[in-house]
Design a protein around this nucleic acid. Sequence first.
DNA 1: GTCCGTGCAAAGCGTTTGCACTGTC
DNA 2: GACAGTGCAAACGCTTTGCACGGAC
Lengths: 131, 131
Amino acid sequence: MTPQRRLILDILHSQNSHLTADDIYEKIKNHIAGVNISTVYRTLDLLEGLGLVVKSEYENGHIYHHAEEGRHHHLVCQECGQIQECTENSLLPLSLELKQKYGFEADLHHHVISGTCAKCHSATKTHHHTD
Amino acid sequence: MTPQRRLILDILHSQNSHLTADDIYEKIKNHIAGVNISTVYRTLDLLEGLGLVVKSEYENGHIYHHAEEGRHHHLVCQECGQIQECTENSLLPLSLELKQKYGFEADLHHHVISGTCAKCHSATKTHHHTD
DNA sequence: GTCCGTGCAAAGCGTTTGCACTGTC
DNA sequence: GACAGTGCAAACGCTTTGCACGGAC
């Protein structure tokens, strides 16, 4: 457990949110000069392998958060980019259905759902903006 | 509607499956020599805009299928890569819950769910293979 | 001396863009 | 001549990899 690795894990804990590799890289640079983005990726990979970090798909890349938050899913607003969490059990019925109907063992541990958050949705409705 | 565009749409219809831009590119090359991957992307973009093609997130890129298949979702097996479809209404209860609990308007029109298909799942259990 | 972790630069992959060519109106 | 569609090459953003250095055992 090197300073770089410790720091990456600390950042993920202290932010308690979902960060891209680059977010983490930017934050690290405030603490240790000369850190490299490749170290960030390598460390995130390692930490994911150790089960300390969870990696989720996000747009053209990935977002990471620490594993101790408990199981949850991400509701990503396509308008404002805000990421909300939803509890794991919201997806449990779906999981069961996929298992029963399709024999498919869904991996919903770190799932990303796109859509529109309440705020943006009401804004859209109010302004009648044509998409 | 140029030959290239017609062909891309035809490929998506004839395959009736989910293809990456590169899959399509490879298939096109069998019919028209000298087609460029950028034309594929541009055309897919255009067809998506016209509502003829649906684009979904997939690993580090995207998959495309034609729009006439009706609403469904993709169950992507992480072991064998196979893509199954599941009906739209499997996700309706989830959609309702996200709306009620979080005010989140989920866009589940072309959603990708990762996991393990029945075949691979039973194989894994049988072989006790350590991951 | 061997190993592991690292910084650095380069490569990789999927995707997008600038530009010049071609054909159509 | 204006325009749209294209091929080509170069660029892009995110991620991975090869290699050499440096510190721990």
